[in-house]
Every structure is written in C-alpha cells, then in structure tokens.
Design a protein around this nucleic acid. Structure first.
Lengths: 151, 151
DNA sequence: TCCAATTAAGTTGTGCGCAATTCAATCTTG
DNA sequence: CAAGATTGAATTGCGCACAACTTAATTGGA
C-alpha cells in the first residue's frame, strides 16, 4: 500500500489544504477554523448546550471546554449553567459575537471560488463525504460493540 | 452559511472519522496515524531525507522533527546527517521498522471494507480530492504571492 | 573570493483532538 | 427514598499542525 493509494491520506491532505486557505481570512477575525465552526453554529442558533454543540461538530468537551473559554475571553460568547439541569452549560452569543457574522460574510464565497468547483460539484462531493463519514462511523460503532462483547 | 453546507466541514469530519477507525488497528502497532504515514513512505523507500519526507506528507520540520524523534526512541527508524550536505538528515528504517510492515499488512483491506465503497468509488473519490487539494494549494499560493507584492 | 542570501532541521509556543479521569448533578431501581 | 449508575462538563496529558524563530551549512553573485 503506497501513500498515493490511501484515501485517508487524500482526505487528510485536502482537509489541511482547506483550513490552510481559510487561515488568513479567519486570522483577520481572530478566529481559528474550529472556533469559526462554533461561531457558524451560534450564528444559526444564538444559544445551545455544550453537549448539543459537541454533537453538531463531533467534538467532545475535552476539545470544546478550552476552545469556548478562549471565545469567552475574547468576549464573543458567554457560558452559563442551565438552571433546570445544573450539569449542562449553555453557550450564547454576545453582541460582539453577533457582529462578527457581518465581517465573515465574504468568506464562503471566496472559499468556493478557490475550490475551482461549480456549486453542483460541491454538493455532490459533500454528499459523498457525508455518506463516507456515516459508513466510517457505523464501522467504528460495530467495532466498539464487538470489543464490548469481549468483556 | 450553515454548517451542513460547508464542504470544508465535511472533509474535516470525514478525515477525523477515518483516523478514528484507524486508531484501534494502529494502536496495536503502537503508531499514531501520522506516524503510520511516515512508516508507509519508509516501507517504500527505506531511506530518505527529512525534507523529502515532508514533501511527500506535506508536513514541515516543526511536525516531523518530534515525530521522528519518537519513532527513533521506539527503535523503528534511525536518523543520520548526510555527509555530502550536513544540513540534511536522512531517516532510515531499522530491522524492527521493516518487520512492522508485516503486522500492518491487514489494515488497508479492513479500512476499505469499512468505507462501504467499491474500489472504483475509492479511486474516483481519491482523484476528486487530489484535484481539490491541488486547486486549494494553487489558491493559497496565489494568495501568498499577492501578499508578497504588497511589500 | 567572500559575504549576503538561501536552505535544512530543530526549537518554542499556541491551539486543537482525543483518551482517561474527576466531580457534581440527575436518574434509576430496588 | 436511598444507593448505585449514568450524565455533562471540566481537567490532565500526549501528539500532532503550524507559525515564528534559531542555528548551522551551503550557494551564488558582485
């Protein structure tokens, strides 16, 4: 198995090349790509639990807790423990966080242009990748279950 | 722009789902996915300069130096400064490193099965991703040049 | 020829990802 | 309703990625 035959490596390279291209644009907003993803969710939802955010981004609290702490330190979000379930914490946009959406408006179009793809191509590739992710998740799940049965 | 319309997020998710599935298999060999990539190159080449390795994997010395140090500590590779150019360092397989290839032989087949794709599908998707990466690299390059001209 | 520019690798510092653990709150079940 | 199990978030520790910098070796002009 040579490197150039690895689908996983092609994904890994493409993903890094993409965030690489995002970097200067996001840098102007003072955001990293994962932070931008969090903001994208919040621009849609205004407020949600850390758990829901983790489900949306497929990230756990080990990643999100410090990331959210940094966004909070920058004044883009606030965190508040839920009153009806003291275990969960809600993340909400501040006014500054909301205002940032305006400054980020140009980014998606510029990224699309850089891909060299037509809209249809993007839609199709994205759909293929989503199916692939689902298949890989299912395989990982099956794997976890068989390891479970070993005990 | 909602999260579910982001091609970059689909790539990022798929890439993480893939390495996630690799993890238990590679864990048995005591390798991380980036370390496995280095070993794949070495199983093909036996020995090459850090610079060539970086070009193959698209990783810089900031990532490779400590990674190679860990592989060397495990006795899988050795590093030696080139005698005809003292700046460059060659990485070479040890016997243990070579032997590990045997134990890794089953992995690609199991990964392919997990993708739920036929070989043709893998080839096509990989080709699409390689084109995408090339386009993104070209865009990043153009961006760097225009920033260069600003000075 | 010599010295300024370039190159290769390594180091430092920051921010993810993720496993493993901790802690408090909530749920469940006998 | 009390005790054990589960849940949500945070923390710790490790290994990438990547920018910025350092050091040493090499190259290429003037």
């Amino acid at each position: 198995m040579t490197l150039d035959r690895q689908l996983c490596f092609a994904l890994y390279s493409a993903s890094r090349a993409f965030t690489n291209l995002y970097r200067p644009f996001l840098g102007e907003l003072g955001l990293t790509y994962p932070q931008y993803l969090v903001m994208l969710v919040l621009w849609e939802r205004r407020s949600l639990a850390v758990k829901e955010l983790g489900a949306a981004l497929r990230l756990d609290s080990g990643t999100l807790s410090p990331l959210l702490k940094r966004l909070e330190a920058r004044g883009l979000v606030v965190r508040e423990r839920s009153s009806d379930d003291e275990r969960s914490v809600f993340v909400a946009l501040t006014d500054d966080g909301r205002d940032l959406q305006e400054r980020a408006r140009e980014i998606p179009g510029q990224m699309l242009a850089a891909t060299g793809l037509e809209i249809d191509g993007v839609v199709e590739l994205r759909s293929t990748l989503e199916q692939l992710t689902a298949a890989l998740d299912a395989a990982a799940e099956a794997q976890a279950e068989s390891k479970e049965r070993e005990r």
